[in-house]
Design a protein around this nucleic acid. Structure first.
Length: 308
DNA sequence: CGACTTTGACCTGCGC
DNA sequence: GCGCAGGTCAAAGTCG
């Protein structure tokens, strides 16, 4: 478990200042009523703190499980890739359009997020000769969770796209939309967007090629202050958003491969990752009214202590 | 009026 | 060669 050992997600809420209440000096009889109220508040605060601590512990456990799953999946992926390479070396010529071995050796798997789609999509394996130059181009796949009721195949990645076609493919009843980057007329990047056949709330966006211009949204990101924030996850650019269906992390995998894969290659350099987690946790906690209440109680307790 | 979307037609590659 | 399937084109429609 490489990350949990490096990430200390527990929150040092410094609950000790409240202990002054236990050792509060004896008060005159006329303040007995006041003490009762204080005692009640103290009990309530302690309960609140216990609850928040328990929640914190739960979150830490959850994170541990997530990291374990990630490592497991990564190992499986590496194993799978090496196996496929062996197969390809043994059978170098395969003209099957539906061949899965081609798709498994291209860049897709390196950039995959979420569950790997072992079934279906063959769009990357069926490259035409006139697109032979594009085979070399970067191909990445991004999974984005959206509202299942949302029928628009829009993946907000900061770039400007122009839809030029839509097609219903054989293996997926949901239509596939074809987009071209319209920010720069010379930009060769294309994008295919289709809902996952397994989970229709997940939209799969496949990017082909590299943008020959900067991300037009990057200027805006510096002034972003809403619920949508753009962060940099190490060298992996990503954006987070909180929706009714829960938080969504979208990785911008259109960046050059060496940049996006550097995280995988250097799991022993998790500082930006840790920073990202801290930011995420801080963001989540500041949105939690219970946490705010507990924090306010802790701070007011500290003030009371200094006043005495 | 320009930019964008929709959608049917067309092109091309692949398998049989 | 034919049919199928994915990808692209371009005219028509829509919207701000």
């Amino acid at each position: 478990m490489e990350f949990t050992s490096l990430l200390n997600t527990s929150l040092d809420l410094n609950i000790k200042p409240l202990k002054f209440l236990d050792s509060a000096p004896t008060t005159p009889k006329q303040e007995v009523g006041k003490n009762v109220t204080f005692a009640q508040e103290r009990v309530a605060l302690m309960e609140e703190l216990n609850r928040v601590s328990a929640e914190n512990k739960k979150l830490t456990e959850l994170l541990t499980v997530m990291c374990e799953n990630y490592t497991q999946l990564r190992n499986q992926l590496m194993e799978h890739k090496s196996k496929n390479l062996e197969i390809l070396e043994n059978n170098p010529v395969s003209r099957k359009r539906k061949g899965t071995e081609n798709s498994s050796i291209n860049n897709n798997n390196n950039n995959m997020i979420g569950p790997s789609e072992s079934s279906s999509s063959d769009e990357d394996s069926s490259k035409k000769p006139r697109q032979s130059e594009q085979i070399k181009a970067k191909i990445s796949r991004v999974y984005v969770r959206t509202e299942a009721s949302d029928t628009s195949l829009i993946v907000k990645d900061g770039y400007q796209w122009r839809k030029y076609g839509q097609k219903v493919t054989r293996d997926n009843p949901c239509p596939r939309a074809y987009f071209k980057c319209s920010f720069a007329p010379t930009c060769p990047v294309k994008k295919k967007v289709q809902r996952s056949i397994e989970d229709q709330s997940i939209v799969v966006a496949t990017y082909e090629g590299e943008h020959n211009h900067p991300n037009p949204s990057k200027q805006e990101t510096t002034t972003n202050s809403g619920s949508n924030r753009n962060l940099t996850l190490g060298t992996v650019p990503c954006s987070t958003s909180l929706s009714s269906s829960g938080p969504t992390i979208t990785l911008d995998l259109t960046k050059p491969k060496q940049e996006t894969s550097s995280f995988k290659g250097k799991p022993d350099a998790p500082e930006p990752f840790q920073q990202y987690f801290v930011e995420q946790m801080a963001s989540t906690l500041t949105k939690d009214p219970n946490f705010k209440a507990a924090l306010a109680a802790a701070i007011s307790g500290k003030f009371l202590q200094t006043e005495k």
